[in-house]
Design a protein around this nucleic acid. Structure first.
Lengths: 244, 244
DNA sequence: CGATTGTTTGATCTCTCTCAATGGGCGTGG
DNA sequence: CCACGCCCATTGAGAGAGATCAAACAATCG
């Protein structure tokens, strides 16, 4: 961990983000009560400087919240990328999840009290936060729907669409997206086994919906059919699935 | 739908809640831009008076957000009870879920603009909201963990614990909780089939962890073992499960 | 009181997990 | 810079948990 120097943080350039809305004075205040962490993949971050939790802001890379069962089964319940805010104020108590880096990552941890005091004096920042939180709730709702009654291939289709949206794409043109985490974490996020992810990815390729290339890159070839599949439309079968 | 009269709303008595922190003048303002709805079970509520969504506050009963796949499979991604706030401002666009009453319910719908303007003039209310939102994120995280890699009986154990907490219990004494929704909705919430819910409920009874009684009431007989089970501890087997 | 909706039990099927083994890629350390 | 080792990805064969189907019963609502 090193002391934050917010003024040189890449996030403050974005006027839409929370950090981008802070005054120079507030940035100074935050700087004094925060620190950046460089995390290697699989490294965990203790979000509690004291007992009341903290606020984590992702500067670079991808981090996730992970739950582990007693026999080792693991689930990643959410993932966060550049600019995302993980508000863990007060979450210290009965939280079963912990933060883990899904790729090499860099995060900023802000103490609860300092964060709170900035919010109190800055309406804009407060609204930016609630907006972020609403966005997260919406994403988590979609994710719960994915984990719910969808089959593995539908789930994967949904995941690709989630990536598509979170990458900032909107149109229907072929888009190249980067899977933000390795297969094994993707499996934990989608509540599948890595083997199943691999098989379904291949199926999606065979169905001509996507095209994979090196470096975790995936090209979406048919966004419409991918959406149909994610919505439960055409069932798994590759060529002429048998409907009852 | 009928026009709101916030002054007579049962929610404003609770000083911790958002509504309870509003000034008399703000309550008047809200009253003019909100309405209450009485919903029968399974009735859906269109959260959009216009295009920019709205804020829904649950006055009584239980409502949930439901996603339906093209072939009829259904998932309930979250449920809300008295005092809970469903902030759907701006969610109108690409939201696949819709609101549905899981029991007979009464809700209040506040227009986006009015809600926003009150937040701008009332810090306390704004913080109450973010606190609620954080709580929801935390709950949804736990729920995602439940849907993830847990087996059906572990999932049900988790659900009972969620009810336990959301009912306001804290101690380890035998507690009687009310399942807030019918089995069929519970199945949709836990991503199981009603048949499976029924079978697992019986198993939990056979294991002496719970006791069911009429009217959706469940008594938790052994909170500790229930927690162990929910955390993946003792595997499904009733008497001496075989671990590898 | 009838009709619809919800709950429970039993038998069978299937999708996904599990287990096992191989190959590739990346980072680490010499 | 290269070689080693670890982690990750992929493929195949087999097993099991939960879904599905079917049917009877209970409860709720109008």
């Amino acid at each position: 961990m090193s002391v934050c120097n917010c003024k040189s943080c890449p996030l403050i350039d974005n006027g839409d983000s929370l950090c981008g809305r802070l005054t120079s004075k507030q940035l100074q205040e935050i700087s004094r009560h925060s620190g950046t962490f460089a995390l290697k993949r699989r490294a965990t971050l203790d979000p509690m400087p004291s007992e009341e939790g903290a606020v984590i802001i992702v500067i670079d890379g991808v981090v996730g919240t992970q739950n582990t069962l007693t026999d080792g089964r693991q689930t990643i319940t959410a993932y966060y990328t550049r600019g995302d805010i993980v508000d863990l104020r007060g979450a210290a108590t009965h939280m079963h999840a912990h933060l883990i880096a899904l790729t090499r990552a860099q995060v900023c941890r802000v103490e609860t009290a300092a964060f709170q005091s900035v919010l109190e004096s800055n309406h804009e920042a407060c609204f930016a936060l609630t907006s972020k939180l609403r966005e997260q709730i919406s994403l988590m709702g979609e994710h719960a729907a994915d984990l719910g009654k969808k089959q593995s291939i539908e789930r994967l289709a949904s995941f690709l669409l989630e990536c598509h949206i979170r990458s900032g794409y909107n149109d229907s043109k072929p888009a190249k997206i980067a899977i933000p985490m390795p297969r094994i974490s993707l499996a934990d996020y989608m509540a599948l086994q890595p083997e199943t992810v691999s098989r379904c990815m291949r199926q999606l390729e065979d169905m001509k919906l996507i095209e994979t290339s090196a470096g975790n890159l995936v090209t979406i070839r048919d966004l419409v059919r991918l959406k149909e599949l994610a919505a439960g439309g055409s069932k798994p079968g590759l060529n002429g699935a048998i409907e009852r």
